[in-house]
Amino acid sequence: MFKVKNGCNNTWMNGEEGKMTQYILAVDGGATKTVLSLRDIKGNIYFEKTSTSTNYQAIGTEKAEKVLTDLLGDAYKETGIRAIDIAAFAMAGIDTIKGLSIVQLMVDRSCKNSPFQIGRIIVENDVQSTLIGLTGKQPGALVISGTGSAAYATDGKGKIVRSGGWGHRVGDEGSGYWIGREILNAIFRFEDGRLQKPTVLTDLVYDMLQISNIEQLNDWIYHPDYTNAQIANISRVLPKAISLGDERAIDIACNAAKELALMTHAVLRKVGQINEDFTVYLNGGVLKSNAVILKLYKDYVKEKYPRISFHLCNQNPIDYIANRAILSLQ
């Protein structure tokens, strides 16, 4: 098979079959970064680029919209493809009806300011979109612990339920941000004399940030360019502290695992009867990079749901979101 460019409408045709190729746009708009991918329905990638966060709750709608607009413009310049059959925008920060309307307006403006002609636009929560792309029409659950955290589940018949994912101000328990905040809190508590035993977390964080005292740490936390992702990045020192036997680090890991398990228990109760072939998919940097938290989490969940299985996602979220878009065309 070969591809030939149709100069009339800047789309591509299948040289063997003479049929128009269907194109999809997939956008993974997270709290830390945003990935846009332009593919055909067979999975061939024509353009893919990573940019900064598009979570309006963290950076505001104006900045988030600019990131989306720039990515869409870059995709068109690179490919020359104009007609897109479906675009799936899987965006962080969609937790309420009002949040959805804010993001929809932001996405609509970005698309109108781009050269693309898009047949259908899907805008939904990033975890929900990933879950649909993972499970298709099968029952299953998805638990994510990255910068933020959330759990979603589906019965495979259209019912989708959630737990967690309420953002850093009131939630995100067990996430990288939550762990980073707990680490920083432990450092300040020890400095104040509210924590009796010293913790190696202090030295590890100071080394990471290349600072030497608590005042410099405080200045770093409250600097003008602060982002939640920077606090989440602090969580990377936890595995090292655990390997050194630090009691406070172990407590943080246990509590993170318990919080993620509580989210999982909640969505599994909401979704209904769980069969033996029910799978809980796991994604996010915390679960992928911290073996202690991963094991503790599985043990806690198995206490109530011994028959379920776990699958650690080995693809990037953008691949599942692209699959979600493709499934909507079928």
Results as ranks from 00 to 15, higher is better:
Thr69Trp: 06
Ile97Cys: 03
Ala83Gly: 01
Asn213Arg: 03
Phe188Glu: 06
Glu247Pro: 03
Ala253Ile: 09
Val4Phe: 15
His265Asn: 15
Ser101Glu: 15
Ser129Glu: 04
Arg194Thr: 00
Lys3Ala: 12
Val267Cys: 08
Ser129Met: 12
Ile183Leu: 06
Gly156Asp: 11
Lys63His: 12
Lys49Phe: 15
Arg82Met: 14
Thr135Leu: 04
Val161Gln: 05
Ile41Met: 14
Arg194Pro: 03
Gly148Asn: 13
Thr79Leu: 08
Arg236Ser: 14
Gly165Ser: 04
Ser309Ala: 14
Leu71Tyr: 07
Asn275Leu: 01
Asn323Gly: 07
Glu78Ser: 15
Glu259Lys: 13
Ala92Gly: 07
Tyr222Glu: 12
Asn213Leu: 03
Gly18Gln: 12
Gly272Tyr: 10
Asn55Ile: 00
Thr54Asn: 13
Gly165Lys: 03
Lys33Tyr: 07
Ser175Arg: 00
Val267Trp: 03
Gly60Gln: 05
Ile221His: 06
Ala256Leu: 01
Lys298Ala: 12
Asp40Ser: 02
Asp219Thr: 04
Leu327His: 02
Ile118Tyr: 11
Thr52Lys: 12
His311Ile: 02
Phe116Ala: 03
Ile183His: 01
Ser289Asn: 15
Ile242Leu: 06
Tyr56Cys: 02
Asn113Ala: 11
Leu204Glu: 14
Ala266Ile: 01
Ala261Ile: 03
Asn6Tyr: 03
Asn44Phe: 03
Met13Ala: 02
Arg248Asp: 11
Ala256Trp: 10
Leu68Thr: 07
Ser212Phe: 03
Ile187Ser: 01
Gly158Ser: 11
Ser53His: 11
Gly180Glu: 06
Tyr281Met: 06
Lys112Val: 09
Asp251Thr: 13
Asn228Ala: 11
Ala257Asp: 11
Val200Pro: 00
Glu65Met: 13
Ile221Gln: 10
Ala64Glu: 11
Thr69Ile: 00
Gly180Ser: 04
Gln138Val: 00
Lys295Met: 14
Lys33Pro: 13
Glu173Gln: 14
Val280Lys: 01
Ala83Asp: 15
Thr11Val: 04
Glu276Ala: 10
Ala253Cys: 08
Val67Arg: 02
Asp319Ser: 10
Ser51Trp: 07
Ser101Cys: 00
Tyr56Ala: 15
Ile242Pro: 10
Ser149Ile: 05
Val143His: 00
Asp207Thr: 07
Cys8Lys: 15
Ser114Lys: 07
Phe310Pro: 10
